[in-house]
Simulated assay, not measured.
Amino acid sequence: MAEFDFISQYRDTFVTYLKDKVQWQEPENLYEPIRYILDLGGKRMRPVLTLMTADMYGAKVEDALDAALAVEMFHNFSLVHDDIMDDAPLRRGKITVHEKWDINTGILSGDAMLILSYQFFEEYPAELYLELTKLFSKTALEVCEGQQYDVDFETRDDVTIPEYIKMIEYKTSVLVAAAMKMGALVANAPQKDADAIYEFGRNLGIAFQLQDDYLDAFGDPKTFGKQVGGDIMENKKTYLYLKALEKATKDDQDGLLHLYSIKPADADAKVEAVKTIFKESGAVDETKQAIENYTQKAFDVLDTLDLPAPKKQLLQAFGEALMNRTV
Rank of each mutant, 00 (worst) to 15 (best):
I165M: 09
V151Y: 15
I115V: 14
G58P: 04
E131A: 13
L51C: 03
F74S: 01
D5V: 15
T155D: 14
D254Q: 14
S78L: 01
P125R: 05
A244P: 07
S109E: 00
S109W: 01
Q119F: 14
I161L: 09
E145Q: 14
I107E: 01
Q253R: 11
I232Y: 01
K19M: 10
V71F: 05
L315R: 00
I206K: 00
T160H: 09
Q23I: 15
L322A: 04
Y241H: 11
N324A: 15
K60M: 10
K250A: 13
P264W: 11
D111R: 01
Y17C: 13
Y118Q: 03
S173N: 08
N29D: 14
V61D: 06
L30F: 11
Q313L: 05
K250H: 14
Y170Q: 12
Y10C: 09
G93E: 05
G319P: 02
L175C: 10
E123F: 11
Q119I: 10
D303F: 05
Y149L: 10
P310V: 07
E280M: 04
T155R: 11
D300V: 00
T16C: 15
L242G: 12
M167R: 06
V327P: 04
K270W: 07
D268R: 10
I232N: 00
D216P: 12
K138R: 14
C144Q: 14
F6H: 13
R35G: 04
A309S: 11
Y164G: 02
A184D: 07
L30N: 12
D213A: 07
T172C: 08
Q9D: 15
E28T: 14
Y118E: 04
T53Q: 03
M233G: 02
M182S: 03
E62C: 09
V22K: 08
A189K: 01
F4H: 08
L114A: 10
K19G: 12
T133L: 09
K236V: 07
M73L: 13
L240C: 12
D251N: 14
L242Q: 09
K138C: 12
L210T: 11
K237T: 12
I107Q: 02
L185W: 06
K250V: 14
K192W: 05
P89M: 06
D55Q: 09
K250S: 15
I232C: 01
V15H: 02
L185I: 05
S8F: 15
P47L: 04
T50F: 02
P89T: 13
L130I: 13
R11P: 06
L132F: 09
K237D: 09
A177C: 05
D66K: 07
L307Y: 05
L245T: 00
V15L: 08
Y214G: 03
F318H: 08
L40R: 08
L305E: 07
